[in-house]
Simulated scan of single mutants.
Amino acid sequence: KLKLILTQFLLHLAEKTDGIIVTNDNLRDFVDTSDTWRKIIQERLLQFTFVEDHFMIPDDPLGRNGPHLDMFLRKDGRYVSPAGVPSTRLPAARPQRPAPSLPDRSPGETSELKRKLYDIFPDQKQRIDRILSDNPYMRDLNALSGLLLG
């Protein structure tokens, strides 16, 4: 009963705020409740996993033909199709460097992130180096891991 109430609350909140829901439940019990909830369930569920004690989310939450995680998470990333219908289905895009107000990592921060990523992805050292080099402002281990998994 509590799960039912919490799930309804999350769907109402996602509807009112144009938000996403982070869950591994596919919410199939609610898909026929309304067209709005069906659309939320189909286009705004973000599933996750754990690798050891690291929280991981996919780089392409809606699959290969869906938007990149950066676009999926942006409210303004939803676009209007030529038919005038809002959609979150955008072509995958490389993350763009954020506003210059975010400073680059220090060499120490980079070394620590590199060490942690090497531990999680021991066979991806070259790719890790490239991703860290291409994204000198990123400090979030999960976000960097997502780029590696994408």
Rank of each mutant, 00 (worst) to 15 (best):
T23D: 15
D134H: 07
R105F: 02
L27P: 08
F50C: 06
R44D: 09
S145T: 10
Q42G: 09
L141W: 06
R64Y: 11
Y118C: 02
W37C: 01
N24F: 12
R28W: 14
D129K: 01
L144Q: 01
K1D: 15
T49V: 07
A143R: 10
E112S: 09
G146D: 02
L102Y: 09
Q124K: 13
A14K: 06
S34L: 07
S106V: 02
R74H: 15
V80D: 15
I21N: 09
A99G: 05
H12I: 03
S101K: 09
L2H: 12
L148Q: 04
L2D: 15
K3P: 02
D35Y: 08
T49N: 11
K1E: 14
Q8Y: 00
K39M: 10
L102F: 11
F55V: 06
K39V: 10
T36N: 13
D140H: 04
G84L: 03
I57M: 13
N26F: 08
R115I: 00
L62C: 04
R44W: 05
Q47L: 02
K114S: 05
Q42H: 13
F48R: 02
A99I: 00
P86Q: 10
Y118I: 00
T110Y: 05
R127S: 00
R64V: 09
L147W: 08
F48N: 04
D70C: 07
K114R: 13
P122N: 08
E52Y: 11
S133T: 06
N26C: 15
H54L: 14
A99N: 10
I41V: 13
E15R: 13
P82N: 14
T36K: 15
I131H: 04
Q96W: 00
M56D: 02
L45Q: 11
I40T: 09
P91W: 05
E15A: 14
S81D: 15
L27H: 04
M138Q: 09
Q47G: 06
G66Y: 09
D104M: 02
H68V: 01
D140A: 03
F30E: 15
G146I: 04
R97C: 01
S133E: 10
T88N: 12
Y79V: 12
E43Q: 11
V85E: 14
R130P: 00
T17H: 05
T23R: 11
A83M: 13
R115W: 02
P136A: 10
P122W: 12
K114N: 01
R64M: 11
Q42C: 10
G150L: 01
T49F: 08
D119K: 08
R64I: 12
L141H: 06
Q126C: 00
H54N: 12
P100W: 05
H68K: 08
L13S: 03
D35R: 13
D32S: 15
K114M: 02
D119T: 10
D76Y: 11
K116F: 01
F9D: 01
Q47K: 08
K125Y: 03
Q126K: 09
P136M: 11
R115L: 04
P136I: 10
F9S: 03
D104E: 07
H12Y: 04
K75T: 14
Q96A: 00
I20M: 07
D134E: 15
I57G: 03
D123T: 14
K116Q: 14
I21D: 02
S106N: 10
K3A: 15
L27E: 15
F55N: 06
